[in-house]
Amino acid sequence: MSLPEPFRLLAYLLGIMAFVGLNAAYLVWVERKGAGRFQRRPGPTEVGYAGLLQPIADAVKLLTKQVIVPPGADATLFRLAPVVVLAPALMCLAIIPFGPHLVAREINVGLLLLFAFGSINVMAIMIGGWASRNKYAIISAARVVSQDVAYEIPMLLVVITMLMVTGTMDLNQIVRQQAGAFWNWNLFKLAANPLMPVTFVIFYICMLAETNRAPFDMAEAESELVAGAFTEYAGMGFGVFFMAEYANIVVGCAVATVLFLGGWQSPIGILPGAFWFLLKLYALVFSVVWVRWTFPRTQFYGLLNLSWKILIPIALFTLILSSVMLKLF
């Protein structure tokens, strides 16, 4: 990469935006196709080959619709929420290493930045729900706040564990440490912490909860709260929330890949790093889709109980365990 710095950044900026846009559009397609397969039906087939143009048709439809601001709603906040929900996801992707050199900005506190931006998403949904002036939206916003606060804690505990194991906040550095075959991945570093797979599962669950995905989709809860915080959004306002959901999934899965699955490291030493990164990323994304189309939604207090009574104690335990291991060996 020999482009001068401002152009390089601009290129990456455009690249990331295109990546997020394409991902949001085509993950919807993947989700619909995947849901179809899980439910023994074909999913979208009509627009383009195997429905491949469906996301574009959907986007065009959403763009042509009027953005309605309901009377009595806080118009400024109502319009602000979709912006606030998407921007952090874009920011996070700027520091994710897609390949050994394929990263917009290498930052030595990357991990910190990631979680700092990652939690803004909650505020956006809260703003959206609050500004809508709709009872369902407000209930949903209140739920989302307590849910995401509850899941931030075990997630960060897991991240601290990882921090102790890796000793760095630089994402690229973390990936480099996991070079070699798959048993060098953090997921299988049982010598550092025998409970590493458990840590991964906790991280995965927290990621689902943070991105408001089923079975933790309290924000939407379509059978209880109609469409939750997004009830009053029409047209592209809703579309942006939808995009942000998928962008957040991509970010979450990317972080999981970097932290646990060896990022762009190839387990067998062939093919470029970006290929392996995307392969692992989309395998995780598929598992997210798989989970969504398998389970019913959790009850709200069940979700909080899971976090406070199960995930946090286990996460704390793994944290202590790995610090003990670190001290002993």
Binding site: R40, R41, P215, D217, T294, P296, R297
Partner: peptide, 13 residues
């Protein structure tokens, strides 16, 4: 019922 509880797939089975 499963749809009420947020699980969509059992409905189609």
């Amino acid at each position: 019922f499963l749809l009420d509880l947020g699980g969509f797939t059992p409905l189609l089975y």
